[in-house]
């Protein structure tokens, strides 16, 4: 009796979160699946069309482009962000005066809205904006057209994401560095390992769980990129910066195609699930706890 009561109390504690979980996460996952078999414009009654949406996706060029763009974006931004973050974390690890102020500043881009950042950078990337002015100053007479070029627009957006993400990841990695036991360094030093070797054999393995966390979250985040695209390019020029969430948003809320957009969402959902699963499986090979 008392036991049941205590279980009841535990579930009462959990109730708000559980309801939120059920109503806004679990049910939507099922409902999204259901919608993906429907033709529905969000206004008139929906009709069941079987696998049509998925078949259409197979031949949808824009979907393929946005998927490819997204993968390209992930493969570039995640590794570069992580590498730069590790370097910055090492730099922050020097115990010099005022280092805390630096840390506060580095973290700054991360607290600002992606939309605002996109707007600022879009202005910076213009032909006579600050970025190209600096490039010209350094003798680069013909700087890239950035957002006006199909080859440079997506890299420009990647640059912004990296710029925004490095400070955040560096702070996490910096905290991770504090957790690497000091005696391991001392032992390595006794064995005659130089600083680089210490980094490879002590720091990186010690840091690997944190790096793993950053990679997993970074990959998930990279599939959610939307605000920067909306602010900087609206998917253009052409379709060169069209990414998944942007395409889903347009399909649902600009083209009134909720069913088709749900099918796309489901693919996005499965992609992230699979990638995360693979990462969890792979972590045994390189992450040391």
């Amino acid at each position: 009796m008392a036991k049941w009561k205590s279980y009841g109390i535990a579930y009462l504690f959990l109730a708000p979160s559980l309801i939120g979980l059920a109503v806004f996460v679990l049910y939507p996952i099922l409902y999204s699946f259901y919608l993906s078999f429907m033709k529905w414009d969000g206004l008139t009654p929906m009709s069941f069309i079987g696998l049509s949406n998925y078949k259409d996706l197979w031949t949808d060029e824009t979907f393929k482009i946005s998927l490819t763009n997204n993968l390209y974006y992930t493969l570039v931004t995640v590794p570069i962000t992580i590498v730069l973050s590790i370097l910055l974390a090492l730099l922050m690890n020097y115990k010099v005066r005022g280092i805390q102020t630096f840390r506060v500043l580095y973290f700054f881009p991360n607290i600002t809205a992606s939309l605002a950042i996109g707007i600022i950078w879009a202005a910076m990337f213009t032909q006579y904006g600050p970025l190209n002015t600096i490039l010209r100053f350094f003798g680069y007479a013909d700087p890239p057209a950035w957002l006006a070029s199909t080859t440079m627009a997506l890299p420009a957006i990647m640059l912004v994401s990296i710029w925004k993400g490095v400070g955040y990841n560096a702070v996490i990695l910096f905290a991770g560095l504090q957790g690497v036991p000091r005696h391991l360094y001392e032992a390595a030093e006794l064995d005659g390992a130089n600083r680089f070797k210490q980094f490879i054999y002590v720091t990186l393995p010690g840091l690997s769980p944190v790096i793993f966390f950053c990679v997993v979250m970074g990959v998930i985040g990279s599939f959610q990129v939307f605000d920067t695209v909306m602010a900087m390019t609206q998917g253009g020029p052409g379709r060169s910066t069209n990414v998944l969430v942007f395409h889903i948003y347009n399909t649902a809320f600009q083209n009134y195609n909720f069913g088709y957009a749900s099918a796309m969402s489901y693919i996005l959902f499965v992609i992230i699930l699979v990638i995360t699963f693979i990462q969890l499986k792979m972590q045994k090979r390189w992450v040391t706890y």
């Binding site: 213009t126 032909q127 006579y128 057209a145 006006a148 070029s149 900087m232 390019t233 253009g236």
Partner: peptide
Amino acid sequence: PFGELVGDA
């Protein structure tokens, strides 16, 4: 040139 006119500019 259109390259100078992308975005809000």
